[in-house]
Design a protein around this nucleic acid. Structure first.
Length: 473
RNA sequence: GGUGGCGUAGCCAAGUGGUAAGGCCAGGGCCUGCAAAGCUCUUACUCGUCGGUUCGAUUCCGACCGCCACCUCCA
Protein backbone atom coordinates (compact mmCIF):
# COMPACT_ATOMS: atom_id res chain seq x y z
CA UNK A 1 0.00 0.00 0.00
CA UNK A 2 1.35 3.38 -1.00
CA UNK A 3 0.63 6.88 0.18
CA UNK A 4 1.84 10.13 -1.33
CA UNK A 5 3.70 11.87 1.46
CA UNK A 6 3.69 15.65 1.15
CA UNK A 7 6.84 15.72 3.26
CA UNK A 8 8.95 13.74 0.81
CA UNK A 9 6.82 14.75 -2.16
CA UNK A 10 6.65 11.18 -3.39
CA UNK A 11 4.72 7.95 -3.18
CA UNK A 12 5.92 5.91 -0.20
CA UNK A 13 5.14 2.46 1.11
CA UNK A 14 2.78 2.77 4.00
CA UNK A 15 4.27 1.31 7.16
CA UNK A 16 2.53 2.34 10.38
CA UNK A 17 4.57 2.86 13.50
CA UNK A 18 2.87 -0.09 15.15
CA UNK A 19 1.79 -3.00 12.96
CA UNK A 20 -1.95 -3.26 12.44
CA UNK A 21 -2.50 -0.03 14.34
CA UNK A 22 -2.90 3.29 12.54
CA UNK A 23 -3.25 6.71 14.10
CA UNK A 24 -4.72 9.55 12.05
CA UNK A 25 -5.06 13.21 12.89
CA UNK A 26 -7.26 15.30 10.64
CA UNK A 27 -7.44 19.06 10.95
CA UNK A 28 -11.06 19.93 11.49
CA UNK A 29 -12.87 23.21 10.96
CA UNK A 30 -12.80 26.47 12.83
CA UNK A 31 -16.38 26.59 13.96
CA UNK A 32 -17.48 30.14 13.25
CA UNK A 33 -19.92 29.08 10.53
CA UNK A 34 -21.51 26.01 8.93
CA UNK A 35 -19.08 23.86 6.98
CA UNK A 36 -18.99 24.12 3.21
CA UNK A 37 -18.37 21.58 0.47
CA UNK A 38 -14.63 22.18 0.57
CA UNK A 39 -14.47 21.29 4.23
CA UNK A 40 -16.63 18.29 3.42
CA UNK A 41 -14.17 17.08 0.83
CA UNK A 42 -11.34 16.85 3.32
CA UNK A 43 -13.53 15.26 5.96
CA UNK A 44 -14.82 12.75 3.43
CA UNK A 45 -11.34 11.81 2.24
CA UNK A 46 -10.34 11.17 5.83
CA UNK A 47 -13.49 9.13 6.37
CA UNK A 48 -12.77 6.95 3.36
CA UNK A 49 -9.12 6.48 4.30
CA UNK A 50 -10.29 5.30 7.67
CA UNK A 51 -12.93 2.98 6.21
CA UNK A 52 -10.46 1.49 3.79
CA UNK A 53 -7.80 0.90 6.43
CA UNK A 54 -10.42 -0.84 8.55
CA UNK A 55 -11.46 -2.86 5.48
CA UNK A 56 -7.82 -3.90 5.16
CA UNK A 57 -7.83 -5.11 8.73
CA UNK A 58 -6.10 -2.28 10.56
CA UNK A 59 -7.16 -0.89 13.89
CA UNK A 60 -7.59 2.80 13.29
CA UNK A 61 -7.73 5.62 15.77
CA UNK A 62 -8.93 8.81 14.16
CA UNK A 63 -8.79 12.18 15.84
CA UNK A 64 -10.40 15.22 14.30
CA UNK A 65 -10.21 18.47 16.18
CA UNK A 66 -12.49 21.48 16.39
CA UNK A 67 -10.91 24.90 16.62
CA UNK A 68 -13.38 26.61 18.90
CA UNK A 69 -11.44 29.72 19.87
CA UNK A 70 -10.05 32.06 17.26
CA UNK A 71 -10.26 35.64 15.94
CA UNK A 72 -12.99 34.70 13.49
CA UNK A 73 -15.14 33.17 16.15
CA UNK A 74 -14.71 36.17 18.41
CA UNK A 75 -15.52 38.60 15.62
CA UNK A 76 -18.50 36.67 14.34
CA UNK A 77 -19.88 36.25 17.84
CA UNK A 78 -19.60 39.99 18.38
CA UNK A 79 -21.49 40.64 15.13
CA UNK A 80 -24.24 38.29 16.15
CA UNK A 81 -24.36 39.48 19.71
CA UNK A 82 -23.72 36.06 21.25
CA UNK A 83 -20.82 34.76 23.27
CA UNK A 84 -17.91 33.16 21.45
CA UNK A 85 -18.47 30.06 23.48
CA UNK A 86 -22.09 29.80 22.44
CA UNK A 87 -21.35 30.41 18.76
CA UNK A 88 -18.61 27.78 18.75
CA UNK A 89 -20.87 25.32 20.48
CA UNK A 90 -23.72 25.82 18.01
CA UNK A 91 -21.51 25.51 14.97
CA UNK A 92 -19.71 22.55 16.45
CA UNK A 93 -23.01 20.74 16.83
CA UNK A 94 -24.01 21.73 13.32
CA UNK A 95 -20.70 20.37 12.05
CA UNK A 96 -21.41 16.98 13.62
CA UNK A 97 -24.91 16.97 12.17
CA UNK A 98 -23.78 17.87 8.67
CA UNK A 99 -20.97 15.33 8.74
CA UNK A 100 -23.33 12.64 9.86
CA UNK A 101 -25.79 13.46 7.13
CA UNK A 102 -23.01 12.96 4.60
CA UNK A 103 -22.43 9.55 6.10
CA UNK A 104 -19.13 10.50 7.69
CA UNK A 105 -18.50 8.28 10.67
CA UNK A 106 -17.59 10.21 13.83
CA UNK A 107 -13.91 10.23 14.74
CA UNK A 108 -12.80 8.31 17.81
CA UNK A 109 -12.02 11.62 19.48
CA UNK A 110 -13.16 15.13 18.57
CA UNK A 111 -10.97 17.28 20.80
CA UNK A 112 -11.78 20.95 21.25
CA UNK A 113 -9.10 23.57 21.66
CA UNK A 114 -10.73 25.21 24.68
CA UNK A 115 -10.64 21.90 26.51
CA UNK A 116 -6.89 21.48 26.05
CA UNK A 117 -5.49 24.76 27.35
CA UNK A 118 -3.33 23.07 30.04
CA UNK A 119 -1.72 20.78 27.47
CA UNK A 120 -0.94 23.74 25.24
CA UNK A 121 0.55 25.68 28.12
CA UNK A 122 2.74 22.70 29.00
CA UNK A 123 3.98 22.44 25.44
CA UNK A 124 4.76 26.15 25.26
CA UNK A 125 6.57 25.84 28.57
CA UNK A 126 8.80 23.12 27.19
CA UNK A 127 9.64 25.23 24.17
CA UNK A 128 10.46 28.20 26.40
CA UNK A 129 12.77 26.05 28.48
CA UNK A 130 14.51 24.90 25.34
CA UNK A 131 15.06 28.47 24.25
CA UNK A 132 12.75 28.01 21.27
CA UNK A 133 10.30 30.66 22.39
CA UNK A 134 10.21 34.09 23.93
CA UNK A 135 7.69 36.25 25.72
CA UNK A 136 6.72 39.79 24.76
CA UNK A 137 4.00 41.64 26.66
CA UNK A 138 2.23 38.49 27.70
CA UNK A 139 2.40 36.84 24.27
CA UNK A 140 4.66 33.92 23.52
CA UNK A 141 6.38 33.56 20.15
CA UNK A 142 8.09 30.61 18.56
CA UNK A 143 11.70 31.27 17.62
CA UNK A 144 11.87 29.86 14.13
CA UNK A 145 15.63 30.08 13.76
CA UNK A 146 15.99 27.49 16.51
CA UNK A 147 14.50 24.82 14.28
CA UNK A 148 16.93 24.02 11.48
CA UNK A 149 14.39 22.03 9.50
CA UNK A 150 11.84 24.82 9.35
CA UNK A 151 10.38 24.87 5.85
CA UNK A 152 10.84 21.17 5.14
CA UNK A 153 7.15 20.47 4.64
CA UNK A 154 6.34 23.44 2.45
CA UNK A 155 9.68 23.24 0.66
CA UNK A 156 10.61 26.79 1.43
CA UNK A 157 13.95 28.31 2.21
CA UNK A 158 14.14 31.04 4.84
CA UNK A 159 14.75 33.73 2.23
CA UNK A 160 11.78 32.55 0.17
CA UNK A 161 9.56 33.04 3.13
CA UNK A 162 10.46 36.67 3.40
CA UNK A 163 10.74 37.66 -0.23
CA UNK A 164 7.12 37.69 -1.27
CA UNK A 165 5.59 38.11 2.13
CA UNK A 166 2.52 40.26 2.02
CA UNK A 167 2.08 40.22 5.73
CA UNK A 168 2.45 43.21 7.95
CA UNK A 169 5.39 42.44 10.11
CA UNK A 170 5.04 42.77 13.82
CA UNK A 171 8.10 44.81 14.71
CA UNK A 172 8.31 43.33 18.15
CA UNK A 173 9.16 39.89 16.82
CA UNK A 174 12.81 38.88 16.59
CA UNK A 175 12.28 37.37 13.18
CA UNK A 176 9.38 38.00 10.79
CA UNK A 177 8.87 34.25 10.50
CA UNK A 178 8.23 33.82 14.21
CA UNK A 179 4.62 33.08 15.06
CA UNK A 180 2.58 33.34 18.19
CA UNK A 181 1.73 30.36 20.31
CA UNK A 182 0.05 32.38 23.04
CA UNK A 183 -1.80 35.64 22.50
CA UNK A 184 -2.07 38.10 25.39
CA UNK A 185 -5.70 38.83 26.21
CA UNK A 186 -7.38 41.88 24.78
CA UNK A 187 -10.16 43.54 26.75
CA UNK A 188 -13.49 41.79 26.40
CA UNK A 189 -12.11 38.70 24.73
CA UNK A 190 -12.28 35.19 26.14
CA UNK A 191 -9.06 34.37 27.98
CA UNK A 192 -7.42 31.78 30.19
CA UNK A 193 -4.86 32.02 32.97
CA UNK A 194 -1.30 31.21 32.02
CA UNK A 195 2.21 31.70 33.40
CA UNK A 196 2.44 34.76 31.12
CA UNK A 197 -0.85 36.31 32.17
CA UNK A 198 -4.32 35.88 30.74
CA UNK A 199 -4.57 35.07 27.10
CA UNK A 200 -5.57 32.47 24.53
CA UNK A 201 -3.71 29.96 22.41
CA UNK A 202 -2.53 30.49 18.86
CA UNK A 203 -3.93 28.26 16.15
CA UNK A 204 -0.88 26.08 15.51
CA UNK A 205 -0.20 25.10 19.11
CA UNK A 206 -3.71 23.73 19.40
CA UNK A 207 -3.17 20.97 16.89
CA UNK A 208 0.30 20.09 18.16
CA UNK A 209 -0.98 19.69 21.70
CA UNK A 210 -4.18 17.87 20.86
CA UNK A 211 -2.59 15.48 18.38
CA UNK A 212 0.11 14.49 20.81
CA UNK A 213 -2.25 14.14 23.72
CA UNK A 214 -4.59 11.77 21.93
CA UNK A 215 -2.22 9.95 19.59
CA UNK A 216 1.23 10.21 21.12
CA UNK A 217 4.38 11.99 20.02
CA UNK A 218 4.50 10.36 16.61
CA UNK A 219 1.35 9.86 14.57
CA UNK A 220 1.04 7.86 11.39
CA UNK A 221 -1.07 10.06 9.15
CA UNK A 222 -1.71 13.76 9.46
CA UNK A 223 -4.28 15.03 7.00
CA UNK A 224 -5.74 18.39 6.07
CA UNK A 225 -6.54 20.73 3.23
CA UNK A 226 -3.66 21.85 1.07
CA UNK A 227 -4.00 25.39 2.35
CA UNK A 228 -2.83 24.17 5.74
CA UNK A 229 0.50 22.98 4.46
CA UNK A 230 1.96 26.40 5.13
CA UNK A 231 2.05 27.85 7.64
CA UNK A 232 -0.17 25.70 9.82
CA UNK A 233 1.37 22.26 9.36
CA UNK A 234 4.88 23.64 9.01
CA UNK A 235 4.45 25.30 12.38
CA UNK A 236 2.96 22.20 13.95
CA UNK A 237 6.08 20.31 12.93
CA UNK A 238 8.34 23.03 14.27
CA UNK A 239 6.60 23.06 17.64
CA UNK A 240 6.15 19.34 18.09
CA UNK A 241 9.49 18.14 16.80
CA UNK A 242 11.55 20.66 18.68
CA UNK A 243 9.70 19.77 21.86
CA UNK A 244 9.81 15.97 21.52
CA UNK A 245 12.87 15.56 19.31
CA UNK A 246 11.08 12.87 17.40
CA UNK A 247 9.15 12.89 14.10
CA UNK A 248 5.67 14.33 14.51
CA UNK A 249 3.86 12.65 11.63
CA UNK A 250 5.08 9.86 9.37
CA UNK A 251 2.79 10.67 6.45
CA UNK A 252 1.41 14.08 5.59
CA UNK A 253 -1.60 14.07 3.31
CA UNK A 254 -3.05 17.17 1.72
CA UNK A 255 -6.42 17.29 0.04
CA UNK A 256 -6.70 19.52 -3.02
CA UNK A 257 -9.22 22.32 -3.18
CA UNK A 258 -12.77 22.08 -4.23
CA UNK A 259 -13.32 24.78 -6.83
CA UNK A 260 -16.34 26.61 -8.01
CA UNK A 261 -16.31 28.29 -11.40
CA UNK A 262 -12.64 27.46 -11.66
CA UNK A 263 -11.74 29.31 -8.47
CA UNK A 264 -11.00 27.98 -5.07
CA UNK A 265 -14.05 27.58 -2.85
CA UNK A 266 -13.12 29.42 0.31
CA UNK A 267 -14.71 31.20 3.17
CA UNK A 268 -12.87 34.41 2.47
CA UNK A 269 -13.94 34.33 -1.18
CA UNK A 270 -17.60 34.21 -0.23
CA UNK A 271 -18.13 31.72 -3.03
CA UNK A 272 -18.86 28.63 -1.00
CA UNK A 273 -21.73 26.17 -1.04
CA UNK A 274 -22.76 25.00 2.40
CA UNK A 275 -22.73 21.24 2.84
CA UNK A 276 -26.17 21.36 4.42
CA UNK A 277 -27.59 23.19 1.42
CA UNK A 278 -26.14 20.62 -0.95
CA UNK A 279 -27.59 17.87 1.24
CA UNK A 280 -31.01 19.44 0.91
CA UNK A 281 -30.75 19.05 -2.85
CA UNK A 282 -28.98 15.74 -3.32
CA UNK A 283 -28.83 12.41 -1.50
CA UNK A 284 -25.63 11.95 0.51
CA UNK A 285 -24.45 9.11 -1.72
CA UNK A 286 -24.63 11.37 -4.76
CA UNK A 287 -22.55 14.05 -3.06
CA UNK A 288 -20.05 11.46 -1.92
CA UNK A 289 -19.82 10.05 -5.42
CA UNK A 290 -19.15 13.49 -6.80
CA UNK A 291 -16.49 14.27 -4.21
CA UNK A 292 -14.58 11.05 -4.86
CA UNK A 293 -14.97 11.06 -8.62
CA UNK A 294 -11.57 12.74 -8.88
CA UNK A 295 -8.40 11.82 -7.04
CA UNK A 296 -8.07 13.65 -3.74
CA UNK A 297 -4.87 15.43 -4.78
CA UNK A 298 -6.51 16.94 -7.85
CA UNK A 299 -8.74 19.97 -7.78
CA UNK A 300 -12.40 19.30 -8.42
CA UNK A 301 -14.92 21.78 -9.72
CA UNK A 302 -18.31 22.03 -8.06
CA UNK A 303 -21.25 22.59 -10.36
CA UNK A 304 -24.73 21.34 -10.89
CA UNK A 305 -23.83 19.47 -14.03
CA UNK A 306 -21.29 17.33 -12.20
CA UNK A 307 -23.76 16.54 -9.45
CA UNK A 308 -26.29 15.51 -12.08
CA UNK A 309 -23.73 13.18 -13.61
CA UNK A 310 -23.14 11.57 -10.24
CA UNK A 311 -26.88 11.18 -9.85
CA UNK A 312 -26.99 9.25 -13.10
CA UNK A 313 -24.07 7.05 -12.13
CA UNK A 314 -25.64 6.27 -8.76
CA UNK A 315 -28.91 5.40 -10.43
CA UNK A 316 -27.11 2.88 -12.58
CA UNK A 317 -25.41 1.39 -9.55
CA UNK A 318 -28.60 1.20 -7.52
CA UNK A 319 -30.60 -0.37 -10.34
CA UNK A 320 -28.03 -3.09 -10.56
CA UNK A 321 -27.89 -3.62 -6.81
CA UNK A 322 -31.68 -3.68 -6.56
CA UNK A 323 -31.87 -6.38 -9.19
CA UNK A 324 -29.09 -8.31 -7.49
CA UNK A 325 -30.67 -8.08 -4.07
CA UNK A 326 -33.32 -10.59 -5.10
CA UNK A 327 -30.69 -13.22 -5.65
CA UNK A 328 -28.98 -12.63 -2.34
CA UNK A 329 -28.35 -15.95 -0.68
CA UNK A 330 -31.23 -17.92 -2.14
CA UNK A 331 -29.15 -19.83 -4.63
CA UNK A 332 -27.11 -22.85 -3.59
CA UNK A 333 -23.44 -22.37 -4.26
CA UNK A 334 -22.14 -24.47 -7.02
CA UNK A 335 -18.38 -24.44 -6.87
CA UNK A 336 -17.94 -25.99 -10.26
CA UNK A 337 -19.20 -22.97 -12.15
CA UNK A 338 -16.70 -21.30 -14.36
CA UNK A 339 -18.91 -18.46 -15.41
CA UNK A 340 -17.24 -15.35 -16.82
CA UNK A 341 -19.00 -13.47 -14.07
CA UNK A 342 -16.99 -15.36 -11.48
CA UNK A 343 -13.86 -14.03 -13.05
CA UNK A 344 -15.31 -10.53 -13.24
CA UNK A 345 -16.03 -10.55 -9.51
CA UNK A 346 -12.47 -11.57 -8.67
CA UNK A 347 -11.11 -9.04 -11.11
CA UNK A 348 -13.17 -6.26 -9.60
CA UNK A 349 -12.02 -7.00 -6.06
CA UNK A 350 -8.40 -7.00 -7.07
CA UNK A 351 -8.76 -3.85 -9.17
CA UNK A 352 -10.54 -2.10 -6.35
CA UNK A 353 -7.85 -3.01 -3.85
CA UNK A 354 -5.09 -2.08 -6.23
CA UNK A 355 -6.65 1.31 -6.87
CA UNK A 356 -7.18 2.08 -3.22
CA UNK A 357 -3.73 0.76 -2.33
CA UNK A 358 -2.24 3.33 -4.65
CA UNK A 359 -2.75 6.49 -2.65
CA UNK A 360 -6.48 5.96 -2.29
CA UNK A 361 -7.36 6.31 -5.94
CA UNK A 362 -11.12 6.46 -5.52
CA UNK A 363 -11.75 7.44 -9.13
CA UNK A 364 -10.05 4.31 -10.34
CA UNK A 365 -11.82 2.25 -7.69
CA UNK A 366 -15.15 3.52 -9.00
CA UNK A 367 -14.10 2.39 -12.46
CA UNK A 368 -13.61 -1.15 -11.15
CA UNK A 369 -17.02 -1.12 -9.49
CA UNK A 370 -18.83 0.06 -12.58
CA UNK A 371 -17.08 -2.45 -14.77
CA UNK A 372 -18.57 -5.20 -12.63
CA UNK A 373 -21.97 -3.49 -12.71
CA UNK A 374 -21.82 -3.76 -16.46
CA UNK A 375 -20.90 -7.46 -16.30
CA UNK A 376 -23.69 -8.18 -13.85
CA UNK A 377 -26.26 -6.42 -16.03
CA UNK A 378 -25.08 -8.46 -18.95
CA UNK A 379 -25.56 -11.73 -17.04
CA UNK A 380 -28.93 -10.61 -15.79
CA UNK A 381 -30.21 -9.68 -19.21
CA UNK A 382 -29.12 -12.92 -20.84
CA UNK A 383 -30.51 -15.04 -17.97
CA UNK A 384 -27.18 -16.81 -17.95
CA UNK A 385 -27.69 -20.08 -16.05
CA UNK A 386 -24.03 -20.48 -15.25
CA UNK A 387 -23.83 -17.00 -13.80
CA UNK A 388 -26.78 -17.42 -11.44
CA UNK A 389 -24.85 -18.97 -8.57
CA UNK A 390 -22.29 -16.18 -8.77
CA UNK A 391 -24.86 -13.44 -8.44
CA UNK A 392 -24.86 -13.43 -4.62
CA UNK A 393 -21.09 -13.15 -4.69
CA UNK A 394 -21.30 -10.23 -7.06
CA UNK A 395 -23.82 -8.58 -4.77
CA UNK A 396 -21.58 -9.07 -1.79
CA UNK A 397 -18.48 -7.79 -3.57
CA UNK A 398 -20.33 -4.75 -4.80
CA UNK A 399 -21.91 -3.84 -1.49
CA UNK A 400 -18.66 -4.36 0.39
CA UNK A 401 -16.67 -2.07 -1.83
CA UNK A 402 -19.43 0.49 -2.13
CA UNK A 403 -19.64 0.67 1.61
CA UNK A 404 -15.94 1.42 1.87
CA UNK A 405 -16.67 4.42 -0.33
CA UNK A 406 -19.97 5.04 1.40
CA UNK A 407 -21.96 5.27 -1.81
CA UNK A 408 -24.41 2.53 -0.95
CA UNK A 409 -26.45 2.59 2.19
CA UNK A 410 -27.85 -0.83 2.95
CA UNK A 411 -29.88 0.37 5.90
CA UNK A 412 -31.57 3.05 3.86
CA UNK A 413 -32.63 0.42 1.36
CA UNK A 414 -34.44 -1.60 4.00
CA UNK A 415 -37.30 0.52 5.19
CA UNK A 416 -38.45 -0.14 8.70
CA UNK A 417 -41.86 0.24 10.27
CA UNK A 418 -44.90 -1.94 10.38
CA UNK A 419 -46.67 -0.01 7.66
CA UNK A 420 -44.27 -1.26 5.07
CA UNK A 421 -45.78 -4.68 4.78
CA UNK A 422 -49.23 -3.21 4.47
CA UNK A 423 -48.07 -0.74 1.86
CA UNK A 424 -46.47 -3.53 -0.15
CA UNK A 425 -49.68 -5.51 -0.14
CA UNK A 426 -51.63 -2.57 -1.45
CA UNK A 427 -49.13 -1.87 -4.20
CA UNK A 428 -49.08 -5.50 -5.22
CA UNK A 429 -52.87 -5.44 -5.41
CA UNK A 430 -52.68 -2.46 -7.74
CA UNK A 431 -50.17 -4.31 -9.89
CA UNK A 432 -52.52 -7.27 -10.04
CA UNK A 433 -55.35 -5.07 -11.24
CA UNK A 434 -53.03 -3.50 -13.73
CA UNK A 435 -52.01 -6.90 -15.04
CA UNK A 436 -55.66 -7.80 -15.53
CA UNK A 437 -56.15 -4.61 -17.46
CA UNK A 438 -53.09 -5.33 -19.57
CA UNK A 439 -54.35 -8.81 -20.32
CA UNK A 440 -57.46 -7.34 -21.89
CA UNK A 441 -55.33 -4.66 -23.54
CA UNK A 442 -56.95 -1.93 -21.51
CA UNK A 443 -53.92 0.32 -21.80
CA UNK A 444 -55.78 3.31 -20.48
CA UNK A 445 -56.30 1.73 -17.06
CA UNK A 446 -52.89 0.13 -17.13
CA UNK A 447 -51.10 3.40 -17.82
CA UNK A 448 -53.22 5.30 -15.37
CA UNK A 449 -52.08 3.01 -12.57
CA UNK A 450 -48.46 3.31 -13.64
CA UNK A 451 -48.59 7.07 -14.04
CA UNK A 452 -50.42 7.76 -10.81
CA UNK A 453 -48.05 5.55 -8.85
CA UNK A 454 -45.16 7.40 -10.47
CA UNK A 455 -46.59 10.61 -9.12
CA UNK A 456 -46.42 8.98 -5.71
CA UNK A 457 -42.76 8.18 -6.34
CA UNK A 458 -43.40 4.54 -7.01
CA UNK A 459 -41.92 3.40 -10.26
CA UNK A 460 -43.11 0.34 -12.16
CA UNK A 461 -41.00 -1.67 -14.51
CA UNK A 462 -42.37 -4.47 -16.66
CA UNK A 463 -39.99 -7.36 -16.92
CA UNK A 464 -40.21 -10.82 -18.36
CA UNK A 465 -41.06 -12.15 -14.92
CA UNK A 466 -43.83 -9.61 -14.43
CA UNK A 467 -44.00 -6.08 -13.11
CA UNK A 468 -41.67 -4.86 -10.36
CA UNK A 469 -41.80 -1.64 -8.44
CA UNK A 470 -39.60 0.48 -6.29
CA UNK A 471 -39.64 3.72 -4.44
CA UNK A 472 -37.76 6.48 -6.13
CA UNK A 473 -36.63 9.71 -4.57
C1' G B 1 9.83 37.25 -7.04
C1' G B 2 9.78 32.06 -4.61
C1' U B 3 7.22 27.13 -4.31
C1' G B 4 3.84 23.46 -6.08
C1' G B 5 0.10 21.58 -9.38
C1' C B 6 -2.87 21.08 -13.76
C1' G B 7 -4.01 20.96 -19.41
C1' U B 8 -6.68 13.28 -21.88
C1' A B 9 -13.26 12.37 -26.35
C1' G B 10 -19.38 16.88 -26.26
C1' C B 11 -18.79 17.06 -20.61
C1' C B 12 -16.53 14.78 -15.96
C1' A B 13 -12.33 11.72 -15.06
C1' A B 14 -8.51 7.38 -14.40
C1' G B 15 -4.01 5.73 -16.49
C1' U B 16 0.69 3.73 -18.64
C1' G B 17 7.67 3.85 -21.75
C1' G B 18 4.69 -0.46 -26.24
C1' U B 19 0.20 1.99 -28.35
C1' A B 20 -6.08 5.24 -24.19
C1' A B 21 -10.48 2.57 -17.44
C1' G B 22 -15.12 4.23 -15.87
C1' G B 23 -19.35 7.68 -15.61
C1' C B 24 -22.77 11.38 -17.85
C1' C B 25 -24.83 13.07 -22.47
C1' A B 26 -25.98 11.88 -27.82
C1' G B 27 -27.31 8.58 -32.05
C1' G B 28 -28.68 3.47 -34.27
C1' G B 29 -30.48 -1.56 -32.97
C1' C B 30 -32.78 -5.39 -29.46
C1' C B 31 -36.55 -5.86 -25.66
C1' U B 32 -41.72 -3.42 -24.55
C1' G B 33 -48.77 -2.49 -26.22
C1' C B 34 -46.16 2.26 -25.30
C1' A B 35 -42.61 3.42 -21.56
C1' A B 36 -38.78 2.78 -17.85
C1' A B 37 -34.66 -0.13 -16.80
C1' G B 38 -31.30 -3.35 -19.17
C1' C B 39 -28.48 -5.31 -23.34
C1' U B 40 -25.90 -3.99 -27.95
C1' C B 41 -23.31 -1.00 -31.58
C1' U B 42 -21.28 4.01 -32.56
C1' U B 43 -18.42 8.46 -30.20
C1' A B 44 -9.97 10.40 -28.80
C1' C B 45 -5.01 6.57 -34.73
C1' U B 46 -5.05 10.36 -30.03
C1' C B 47 -3.61 12.56 -24.70
C1' G B 48 -2.04 21.89 -24.68
C1' U B 49 2.18 23.44 -28.47
C1' C B 50 7.16 22.71 -30.19
C1' G B 51 11.69 20.17 -29.71
C1' G B 52 14.91 16.13 -27.40
C1' U B 53 16.04 11.03 -25.34
C1' U B 54 14.31 6.05 -27.04
C1' C B 55 13.43 0.59 -31.44
C1' G B 56 8.99 3.01 -29.48
C1' A B 57 6.31 8.71 -25.46
C1' U B 58 0.31 10.63 -23.99
C1' U B 59 3.62 8.61 -20.24
C1' C B 60 10.90 10.67 -19.34
C1' C B 61 13.73 15.58 -20.32
C1' G B 62 13.63 20.83 -22.07
C1' A B 63 11.25 25.20 -23.87
C1' C B 64 6.81 27.68 -24.68
C1' C B 65 1.41 28.77 -24.21
C1' G B 66 -2.87 28.58 -21.01
C1' C B 67 -5.12 27.78 -16.15
C1' C B 68 -4.98 27.15 -10.72
C1' A B 69 -3.05 27.31 -5.85
C1' C B 70 0.33 28.51 -1.63
C1' C B 71 3.89 32.26 0.20
C1' U B 72 -1.94 36.30 4.67
C1' C B 73 -7.25 33.82 8.09
C1' C B 74 -9.52 29.72 5.06
C1' A B 75 -10.28 22.13 4.52
Amino acid sequence: MKIYNSLSRQLEDFVPLHPEQVSIYSCGPTVYDYIHMGNARTALVTDIIRRYLVYKGYNVKLVQNLTDIDDKIINRAAELGVSAKQLAHQNGEAFFQDSQRLGIQPADVHPKATEHIPEMIDLIQILLEKGAAYVIDGSVYYRVNQFAEYGKLSNRKPEDLLAGARVEIDERKEDPRDFDMWKAAKPGEPSWESPWGRGRPGWHIECSAMAMKHLGETIDIHAGGEDLRFPHHENEIAQSELATETPFARYWMHVAFLKIDGKRMGKSEQNFILLRDALDNYPPEVIRHFLISAHYRHPLDYNQESLTKSEGALRRLNNCLDALKNYDGDIETNETTAAPLQHAVQEMKSQFTQAMDTDFNTAQALGAIFTLVSEVNKSLSTLDEAAAPVLPKAYQALTETCQVLGIYNVEAQNDDGNNVQHRDQIINLLLEIRQDARNRKDWETSDKIRDRLKELNIEIKDTREGATWKIIS
